[in-house]
Simulated scan of single mutants.
Amino acid sequence: MRLRDVRRRTALTATVAVLAAAGTTAAVAAPATSAPPRFLAPGELPPHASSPWYASKVTPGLPDPAQFCLDGGAVPAGDGTYHRSYWTEYDTNAGQVTVVTADDDSARRLAAKLRRQVARCAGDWLHDKPGGTASWKDYGTVSAADGGRVYGVHTSMPESEPGIHLFGVGRSGRTVTVVRWGEMGTFAQAPVPAFKTTLRQALNKL
């Protein structure tokens, strides 16, 4: 091979290496541009008889204070976690927390963990408030995305108004969401069919 051809090939190889390195650097340095997942609109919550629903902005991280039954580090607080709060002109309120995980397996494990957290919430509450009463119900599944499940938790203290909460835990791919609804009352006041529709809408938006 002539010396001129060797120099030409060497120069070409160096040029290709530089271009490849530049492309690799650009790919690594490109900032993440993923938008937050879509959240429920106020009108998608179970209707209140005397008030419209209002909502905060979708906010990164966890709500402060933590939502009932979802405290104690049950929900990861890092990047990929978002929340939104909802309220009415009366005591009824709600919240949604959504976590975008690394992959489907991570999301599946997190959803299972959150279902266990809600299912044992009544017992944990009684442990901290032995003078009260608490119970829970499993209202079954919701068919949307990769599936959801609805639970009810009732708590009561002597000489105090009882509280009823509904929780929906579900997943779509690598994204997990938890929807909570609560007000003063008992299981009889829980709008279970409407809340299942709410969870279905939340999952379809992920």
Rank of each mutant, 00 (worst) to 15 (best):
G80I: 04
L126H: 05
T198A: 11
H48N: 14
L126Y: 04
Q67M: 14
A27Q: 13
I164M: 13
D146Q: 09
D138P: 02
A21F: 14
H154I: 04
Y90N: 06
P63V: 13
G170W: 00
G170N: 06
P76V: 13
C121E: 02
R115Y: 03
R84L: 04
N204H: 11
T155N: 08
Y86D: 00
L203M: 10
G185D: 01
A20K: 09
I164N: 04
S143V: 06
D138W: 06
T133G: 12
P63F: 14
T10L: 15
R180D: 06
L62Q: 06
T15Q: 02
E89L: 14
A145I: 02
G95R: 08
H127C: 00
T101G: 02
R200H: 13
V169A: 08
L12I: 05
D71K: 15
S106F: 08
Y151H: 12
L206T: 05
T25F: 15
A107P: 02
P162E: 05
R4E: 00
D64Y: 07
A77T: 03
R149V: 01
D138C: 05
A202I: 08
G61D: 07
V75H: 00
D124G: 11
L206Q: 09
Q117P: 03
F68M: 14
V16N: 07
T92M: 05
R115C: 04
S172P: 00
L12V: 06
G73Q: 07
W125Q: 08
V99I: 10
A112Q: 13
S50G: 10
G78K: 12
D105M: 10
R7E: 03
R7T: 00
P191V: 09
V153I: 15
V176H: 08
C69Y: 07
Y54W: 07
Y86G: 01
C121R: 04
P162C: 00
A66C: 10
S50V: 11
H127W: 03
T133S: 12
K196Q: 15
S143A: 14
G170I: 02
V99M: 08
P31Q: 12
T88R: 11
A32W: 04
R115N: 03
T101W: 00
A66P: 15
A188Y: 07
T186V: 09
S34Y: 09
F167V: 02
H127D: 01
F187I: 02
P60C: 09
S51V: 02
